[in-house]
Design a protein around this nucleic acid. Sequence first.
DNA 1: CCGCAAATATACTGTCTAGTATGTAAAAAT
DNA 2: ATTTTTACATACTAGACAGTATATTTGCGG
Lengths: 215, 215
Amino acid sequence: MRPAVDNSFDVKSEAKERQRELKSGVIAYKRATILKEASALFYERGYEGATLEALANRLSVTKPFLYTYFKNKGDILSAICELGVKESLAALGHIAQHEGNSLERLEASLREVARIIIEHHEYLVVYQREMMNLDRDDAQRILRLRHEFDLKIARLVAACEEDGYVTIENASAMSAWMAGLLTWITTCYRPGSSRSSEKVVDEVVTACLRLVGVG
Amino acid sequence: MRPAVDNSFDVKSEAKERQRELKSGVIAYKRATILKEASALFYERGYEGATLEALANRLSVTKPFLYTYFKNKGDILSAICELGVKESLAALGHIAQHEGNSLERLEASLREVARIIIEHHEYLVVYQREMMNLDRDDAQRILRLRHEFDLKIARLVAACEEDGYVTIENASAMSAWMAGLLTWITTCYRPGSSRSSEKVVDEVVTACLRLVGVG
DNA sequence: CCGCAAATATACTGTCTAGTATGTAAAAAT
DNA sequence: ATTTTTACATACTAGACAGTATATTTGCGG
């Protein structure tokens, strides 16, 4: 019944290819959905206080379902932590190629990271709190990402120094404290708090720049 | 055999009084010892990851011993958290009565608090991380202490503004970010890290003052 | 030296939860 | 239409740990 032409195989394999893509997309979507709910749960109850059954209930699925998408509870945690740090890092990557002078790049970067931290603040709170519950390997991998983040901030500051926008002594040491201010956002800003997210972003950018004597 | 004089009762009751004091001192000492070891354990393993049996072993005692000095595991945690915040608060109290102008008082206060945070940094890390594991009542009581702390810092900054040492706009909003920098000490400074505690203290004080445009 | 009380230990229980072995229904392939 | 695979659920296990009931030691008053 099927035409016995040469390209029949190609058509078939192409269809399979598309199907595979669809499937892997679905899997990624499911993983992301689980992670989003898990981060909300871990944020509320803490890692150990959150049971996988509770997570399954919130997703209207069952426990073994979770185990088909994640190796174990720790795997879920490490995925959350990694995502939080990776998003922050990605924000710095985008701005790096921006036009503008080094000071403008520093300010834009800080602003963007602050926004991302507010957006994903559950992920980052969980990371800060539950770091110690990570496997040694996961912890190290994520720590390397964090160091990469710190290094990028330090380089932005160094560029400002080289270009003469920042003349204060001790400026390079201050980049570590900028990370502290950015992290503090997760305490200052709570969804539904009195301070609007825009105001918090403005304040933290101002604060960071003042650390190196700008503004 | 005992002289039948009037003051026999007084002597006896005085002795008993002293004995009671001794005993309550011993109890306080034992509680403090438990808390010190518990904070070290919670710091290393996390609250849920730390078992009371492990704590008992580290103290070379047994589990029921702990229960004679604390109501339950949560009681130990809340005592640790309260201690950490109370010490920081006490540091601010000492300096408040210092001589010197308002700017000198602000700097001295920041320096003292920074020192205390380094000294008790295990207590404070545990507090930050495990806050959510506290009973609602304990959490609120300790949060009130925290707010008192924030308020005192804010007042020190306000005094500097009134006296004209700080003229930067937005200075009052910055006191909240000072708390962030002070908290970040617990991440920057780890015992046995490369940075000496004196250097960290100097840096954080400098950073805090720069937030309000001083230095 | 005796008896009582305070302090601490031994040994146990009940519960909770991460992880799994097995079952089932629907879709895909043949 | 039949088999195979995928995708999930049901139902269970094993172990850990907070908290406790009971036993034992120690020290002290008389």
